[in-house]
């Protein structure tokens, strides 16, 4: 009985909230890693993995850590910023007001108000991680409130479906920061990241300690890649996120008579097969290619969902 339009709102509300958190994590990773480097070069890859280099240059600002951080944190004209994501969460929630809990609306309003306040602040780089923590805390209360107060209806399913897909997508980009340079076989500048970088990354997906427990003392970076991508016990892994998405599709059919249809099922299967058979060695060019293909599969699934549920005849 849910209107297609609201299903779409719920889906995107989930996606944008996840995006705000992922961006905050991405900035924290970059900041903590770039801290002991002498120039701001460490910030350029973020622009590349989001295909944002051109958009950033259009703003005519030099490529400094602070400018890139501001571009992704509080630039409302950048559709891929935390500020834009928070705005879109609010606007989608606004349309859904009568279908979501008052507690979650209240939290979203306050969250967005905080982000707007941030927009007015000219923060220094030293404050970046504090700000990112604040955003992440907003995300955590959001998830908690959603979990604790949402009626488990179609709105909930679509919201969690959108969130899961976005999470899957964003984690691949997080890893790709160090691997997109392997795009070309002949790129000799591409150097694999060291253990320190992987540790930072593991911490950013709340997987560092679990990884230490799971793996031998002298674990390989490729093990870390596999862990973050495919471990189904790690809630932020791509596999976990994708499985969560598949589960929501299944429940939509089972509980709400909203059959996914052949295109959605096929797209989901493609993604699932891909994640079930990663390349033997997850490093270098094969890893980059794999991440790329996963992203394409996720996009394919999102398109199929859009066709099936959000664009009724």
């Amino acid at each position: 009985m849910l209107l297609s339009r609201y299903a779409e709102n719920a889906f995107w509300m989930g996606r944008y909230m996840e995006r705000a958190d992922s961006l905050a994590r991405l900035l924290m990773v970059t900041e903590s890693f770039a801290a002991d480097q002498e120039n701001d070069e460490a910030w350029a890859p973020i622009l590349s993995v989001f295909y944002d280099t051109e958009a950033f240059n259009e703003r005519g600002k030099p490529l400094t850590a602070l400018n890139v951080a501001r571009f992704y944190l509080n630039d409302p004209t950048n559709p891929n910023s935390v500020a834009s994501a928070a705005h879109m969460v609010k606007e989608n929630a606004r349309a859904l007001r009568h279908l979501i809990s008052t507690e979650s609306w209240r939290q979203i309003s306050i969250f967005q108000k905080d982000i707007i306040a941030l927009q007015k602040r000219r923060f220094a780089l030293s404050q970046l991680s504090d700000i990112c923590y604040q955003i992440r805390n907003g995300y955590f209360s959001h998830r908690g409130i959603i979990e604790a107060t949402s009626f488990r209806d179609e709105v909930w399913r679509f919201n969690r479906l959108g969130a899961a897909l976005e999470r899957a997508d964003q984690v691949t980009r997080l890893i790709d920061i160090k691997y997109f340079r392997f795009d070309r076989d002949d790129d000799h500048h591409a150097t694999p990241p060291d253990v320190a970088w992987w540790n930072t990354l593991l911490r950013s997906v709340s997987g560092y300690h679990a990884f230490q427990r799971r793996h031998s003392f002298n674990a390989d970076p490729a093990d870390a890649a596999k862990f973050i991508l495919c471990d189904n016990h790690l809630p932020l892994s791509v596999t976990s996120a994708a499985n969560a998405a598949f589960y929501q599709i299944e429940r939509l059919e089972r509980d709400f008579n909203a059959q996914p249809g052949p295109d959605v099922l096929k797209a989901a299967e493609t993604l699932q097969d891909r994640l079930n058979s990663p390349p033997a060695r997850l490093s270098g060019r094969p890893l980059h290619k794999f991440l790329d293909q996963v992203q394409v599969d996720i996009m394919g699934l999102a398109n199929a969902l859009n066709e099936r549920y959000f664009s009724p005849a």
């Binding site: 009985m1 849910l2 209107l3 297609s4 339009r5 299903a7 709400f256 008579n257 909203a258 009724p312």
Partner: peptide
Amino acid sequence: RDLIVDDQDRVFMKTISG
């Protein structure tokens, strides 16, 4: 935009289940 009227003049809303 969520509603349509069919050729028998009935009003319908577009939902995820039709």
